[in-house]
Design a protein around this nucleic acid. Structure first.
Length: 809
DNA sequence: GGGCGTGTTGTTTTT
DNA sequence: CAACACGCCC
């Protein structure tokens, strides 16, 4: 999180009579200062959105170093995303220079990988283990569900995967789960079987999934106290950002690291639950600083436990708590909206963000007829802001689900608005990229059978299911890996043609291994990754197959692979010592490495989850509709709607100066066009804060549907309104506001449906409110058909044919 | 073994 | 509207 209001003071020597970190405190308010200078065992910084927490965290680190209370190597700072880690490293670097280099500033996952690589041999892995991303683990689970016939017990791959993930985040394994589960239920028995074979397969493949990275590190520390002590001795100051999003495993990891050195020298009763209360808090335990805001907890679905932060003081008796409430980011209007929305969550500590920069512009609201109409509004508005001097890079568009980006993209391309999608459809999830990486994995971690199976028939070699099974059987019989079985093609029992195909694959892999992992034991130069990858793609025939193909998409695939090769070059430049394993680790852990630099000059599009921790001058919150935000699926989950509200809150608080909320009355989801209702969250924003260019009431067929331009003019916020929802939001005051269907944020429970009423230019129609008129034209298709009607008394209007209260005359 | 057509299905957020 | 599974045919 950047913080423009507290400029960094670089370089200048501190006044001689001041403390050595005095310059770091300049420009900080009282609580911020305290958060930087407090020294003690445990510190909780409750940091509201935009309260300068990154600034505080980086200065706290700089202060520890400047006062020589810590060496860089004694500091472990944990963030949630690689991007945040990079930013923090950068800012600490600005404050104190080179000395920052020995610190560990990384995500939970990267830190754990580093530890696990060092210690892998302790517990049955090798340091060249690979990491399964969610796609890899889903593929494996899918196979296992099939093998165990899980589907006949109602087990789906996706469901099984998410259950396993949840259990791992709770530090449960198949065995401990089986003890507590109802094992007389056959479905439970099968699930446990799948769970344990999944784990067995991972171990055999010398691989960890994302959840294992954390959980296995915890197990490692618990099983080998002397190993844990190494890290406890090393890390004297541990700082955790976004603490509200830690799950139980991450919490346990931090707890392990902050125990006193040697505290579990006596045999530790592993396998049971940890009993934190019994812990001594000796002087030699590392100091712990956590920063978080429970109002921004949006990862419960991934096991984040809000109690980790709300019960911090209980977990760490004597902990100091500092509250940062002053906001340096947004205008008061934006903060008032945010405060009002989040106040609807019960069971939270009251906290109000405030600022002294003034009210600022009103929030702009817009309701489109369709998602394209909404997108057009966003594009037009961005253009107009851009003309006023706001760079594209200062603008962000948020949405709840990735699929919403399509409509925006289409319109942005047509309107020539430069944009960049952050995090979306990931480069590394494309099939050809996964294939190429599987080749690399097959070399780097030959134990990983999944990777070898993946490339077995890519490009086509005529090796199908039957042959794959034959190889697997041979491997099992001779107790060798799938990869090694390829070297014995003659004994597998397949025809000469297939033998040749297998030999050829084996040869390519062997040749690449010689380049990337020289047997002599010397370290291969980091450029060997590029060399090896190119060799693999060329000699395997992968490139040739794509070039020979007449599928036009294959050209794009070739380009993508070229880009991957470019990524390896870049990697070699940045990591002169980097090995193929380092490259693979980076690629799986760093979702998209390229978004940090080249987002300049483009509007940023992203999901609300990705938006956390970022800020923009102008923000567009799109798709603010029931069933989308809050998402339909959240309705049945405990705490779901509240989490969705926090998501909305996170979105609002990303805006510095201008906030736009928008929705569409119809949305094509799933082939069908459905009529959408405004989100309940819109009603929670005080009406006088929103200036509706086109309110939901304008568009739902009752209350008029003037063009945006007409509506925009003469609309002023804060007109006297009769009730909280604001009659003044209805631009055409034609009717007593008592009619609930007139509330701008509501749609009558029963939505009118004209079905596929046929209308053509020239038809005369009657509208419930506008009287009779003549159809000029009909545009759009299906449920999105819009009739352009010239009414006899009120002039031209656009109406959504499907739901407008009209009939033919 | 692989290509093609048809049918079925699910449908959120991410390290 | 996807992506995917399945069955059919070469």
């Amino acid at each position: 999180m950047t913080d423009a209001s507290t400029p960094l003071i670089v370089g200048g020597p501190a006044p001689s009579d001041a403390r050595p970190d005095a310059d770091l405190l300049q420009g900080l308010n009282g609580p911020q200062r305290e958060a930087v200078t407090y020294r003690g065992q445990a510190l909780l910084i409750v940091a509201g959105a935009g309260s300068g927490k990154t600034s505080v965290l980086t200065r706290r680190i700089a202060s520890l170093l400047r006062t020589r209370e810590a060496y860089p190597s004694q500091i472990l700072a944990i963030t949630f995303t690689n991007k945040a880690a990079g930013e923090m490293r950068e800012r600490v670097h600005q404050l104190i220079g080179q000395k920052a280099d020995g610190m560990w500033i990384s995500t939970f996952h990267s830190a754990c990988v580093r530890i696990l690589r060092r210690e892998a041999e302790q517990f049955g892995f090798t340091k060249s283990f690979t990491i399964y991303d969610s796609g890899d683990s889903r593929a494996l689970i899918k196979r296992l569900v099939k093998e165990h016939e899980g589907d006949s017990f109602g087990l789906t791959p996706a469901g099984t995967q998410s259950r396993i993930s949840k259990l791992k985040n709770e530090l449960a394994d198949a065995e401990s789960y089986a003890r507590s589960a109802n094992m007389s239920d056959p479905a439970e028995r099968v699930f446990v079987e799948i769970f344990s074979s999944y784990q067995r397969e991972l171990q055999r493949a010398n691989a960890f999934d994302f959840d294992d990275l954390i959980a296995q590190t915890v197990y490692l520390f618990r099983a080998f106290p002397q190993v844990a002590d190494v890290y406890r001795r090393r890390f004297r100051h541990i700082l955790v950002d976004e603490y509200q999003d830690t799950n139980h495993a991450q919490y346990a990891l931090i707890h392990e690291l902050t125990r006193p050195v040697g505290s579990d020298a006596e045999p530790f009763s592993s396998g049971g639950m940890m009993i934190f209360e019994a812990e001594p808090t000796g002087d030699d335990a590392a100091s712990l600083t956590v920063v978080g805001d429970s109002d921004q907890s949006i990862y419960a679905f991934r096991g984040a436990d809000i109690r980790n932060i709300s019960e911090f003081e209980r977990d760490y008796p004597g902990a100091k708590v500092v509250l940062l409430e002053q906001n340096y980011r947004s205008t008061q209007n934006i903060l008032s909206a945010a405060n009002a929305v989040i106040a609807n969550n019960f069971d939270r500590k009251d906290k109000k963000l405030w600022t002294d920069v003034g009210a600022g512009d009103p929030i702009i609201g817009f309701t489109g007829y369709s998602q394209h109409d909404e997108a057009q509004f966003v594009a037009d508005e961005i253009e107009s802001l851009h003309k006023k001097g706001l760079p594209y890079s200062g603008v962000a568009v948020f949405y709840r689900t990735n699929s919403q980006s399509r409509a925006l993209e289409e319109i942005f391309i047509r309107s020539a608005v430069p944009y960049k999608i952050m995090g979306g459809t990931k480069f590394y999830e494309r099939a050809e990229i996964k294939d190429a990486l599987a080749y690399l994995i097959a070399v780097a971690n030959p134990a990983d059978g999944m990777a070898v199976r993946r490339i077995l028939n890519r490009p086509r070699r005529g090796i199908g299911d039957v042959t794959e099974t034959a190889i697997a059987r041979y491997a099992a019989e001779h107790d060798i890996t799938f990869r090694d079985a390829l070297a014995n093609s003659a004994q597998i029992g397949v025809g000469p043609k297939l033998q040749k195909a297998i030999d050829q694959l084996d040869a390519v892999l062997t040749e690449a291994t010689a380049i990337m992992l020289p047997a002599s034991g010397e370290l291969a130069p980091s450029t060997s990754v590029t060399e090896g990858l190119t060799l693999l793609l060329n000699k395997s025939g992968y490139f040739d197959a794509l070039r020979a193909s007449k599928d036009p998409q294959d050209e794009a695939r070739l380009e993508n692979l070229d880009e991957l090769v470019a990524v390896t070059r870049e990697f070699a430049r940045n990591n002169p010592e980097g090995t193929i394993i380092d490259f693979l680790t980076e690629v799986t852990l760093v979702a998209d490495a390229d978004d940090l630099d080249d987002a300049s000059g483009s509007v940023s599009l992203m999901t609300l989850h990705t938006a956390k921790g970022l800020e923009y001058d102008a923000v567009f919150l799109t798709g603010v509709e029931e069933d989308l935000l809050p998402h339909r699926i959240s309705a049945n989950e405990p705490g779901g709607p509240q989490e969705e509200r926090r998501l909305f809150y996170v979105g609002i608080t990303r805006a510095r100066k201008r906030l736009h909320v928008s929705l569409a009355m119809t949305r094509a989801q799933f082939g069908e066009v459905t009529v959408a209702m405004p989100s309940r969250f819109l009603q929670e924003i005080p009406a006088d804060l929103i200036d509706w260019r086109q309110s939901p009431g304008d568009v739902n067929g009752r209350g008029g549907s003037q063009s945006r331009a007409l509506n925009a003019r003469g609309r002023r916020p804060g007109q006297p309104g009769g009730n909280r929802y604001g009659d003044d939001l209805v631009p055409l005051p034609k009717r007593a506001p008592a009619d609930p269907s007139k509330f701008p944020n509501r749609i009558p429970a029963k939505v009118r449906d004209n079905g596929d009423m046929q209308l053509a230019a020239g038809d005369r129609i009657r509208h419930d409110d506008f009287g009779e008129g003549r159809v000029d034209a009909v545009t759009g298709e299906g449920a999105k058909r819009v009739a352009h009607v010239r009414f006899d008394t009120v002039g031209p209007k656009k109406l959504l044919v499907k739901i407008a209260p009209i009939s033919k005359v």
